[in-house]
């Protein structure tokens, strides 16, 4: 069963000194793809700016805007209503490991097999991946990777940043959803399974009441290619379902940052993120 969810996502910066101009791109509008439909979407900024919308290489809707004239704070708010995709069970007709190693597959998904900036390769992690792959078929392998990641990482805020790589988080033994996803990507790719990073939102409760607004979170998980893409949430150890709202996909965080920009003058600090989600039906 799919849900209809309203998401209100607010994020921004505060600057040390008044900033004369800034150029920004927000990737916060949910996608319409793979069963999910975005019914309404609207991005506003404060100070107000004319926004320009385009779809990037990864198919993500980007809201670009520039602000001129001194300002000390920038707040971006995205509101959307989304018909989420219902959860799918583990796929059937899954290709075998040998089929995944075939040239047509490796060529087609080359971007999702090669190590990436935040999910680099590491010999020890590659050994782990091979061990896990030897014991599982590809479809069992994905949840097994999730289990392994959750064993190694403790969920903790504030110890890692957006530029922390999977290897660093793994060595630290803690992190947030982004680090869980990156670490899972390293293992999946090391085993030869095409894998991509997904950013989006998560409704926290599986039996949410309709009409009730709760605090949600911006979230990240992964998708592995098992004959088709299949989403898995390594932080929570569950398959992706109606609670997940997909915004963007890419090789890792760097392809899908929710808010990215440059400005001139002063220094900036993040205002943090607030996400409010309401199940509408």
């Amino acid at each position: 069963m799919s849900w209809q969810v309203r998401v209100e996502h607010s994020t921004g910066y505060r600057y040390g000194n008044p900033v004369i101009s800034s150029y920004n791109e927000a990737r916060i509008v949910p996608q319409t793809a793979s069963g999910q439909v975005t019914l309404e979407a609207d991005v506003r900024t404060e100070p107000a700016a004319t926004t320009y919308r385009y779809w990037d290489y990864w198919g993500t809707q980007v809201t670009a805007f520039d602000i001129h004239g001194p300002h000390q704070e920038l707040i971006v708010t995205g509101r959307s209503v989304v018909q989420t995709a219902s959860g799918r069970g583990r796929p059937t007709n899954v290709p075998r490991w040998t089929a995944l190693a075939d040239e047509p597959v490796t060529d087609r998904f080359v971007e999702f097999i090669r190590p990436s900036h935040s999910a680099p390769d590491h010999p020890e992690l590659a050994d782990t991946a091979r061990e896990l792959a030897a014991r599982h078929t590809p479809d069992e392998f994905v949840p097994a990777v999730g289990d392994w990641v959750r064993e190694r990482l403790t969920y903790r805020h504030g110890t890692t940043g957006v530029h922390t790589s999977a290897v660093d988080a793994w060595k630290q033994g803690e992190g947030v959803c982004q680090d869980f996803a990156h670490l899972a990507l390293v293992l999946m790719r090391a085993a030869g399974l095409p894998a991509r990073y997904v950013s989006g939102y998560l409704h926290p409760s599986a039996d949410a009441a309709v009409g009730e607004t709760v605090v949600g979170q911006s979230h990240a998980w992964v998708e592995g290619w098992l004959g088709d893409w299949w989403g898995f949430d390594p932080t929570n150890g569950v398959a992706v379902g109606e609670q997940h709202v997909i915004v963007a996909r890419g090789r890792d965080y760097n392809d899908v940052p929710p808010l990215l920009g440059v400005y001139s003058g002063g220094s900036s600090t993040s205002l943090g993120v607030t996400v409010a989600v309401t199940r509408l039906g």
Binding site: W55, D56, Y57, W58, T106, D107, V110, E111, R114, D255
Partner: peptide
């Protein structure tokens, strides 16, 4: 069409995804 392997293009340092579109 497989004229050029995808990996060569996609791994090129000068293939700028930002220029797509």
């Amino acid at each position: 069409d497989g004229i050029v392997p995808r990996r060569l293009v996609l791994s090129s340092a000068h293939f700028h995804r930002a220029a797509h579109g």
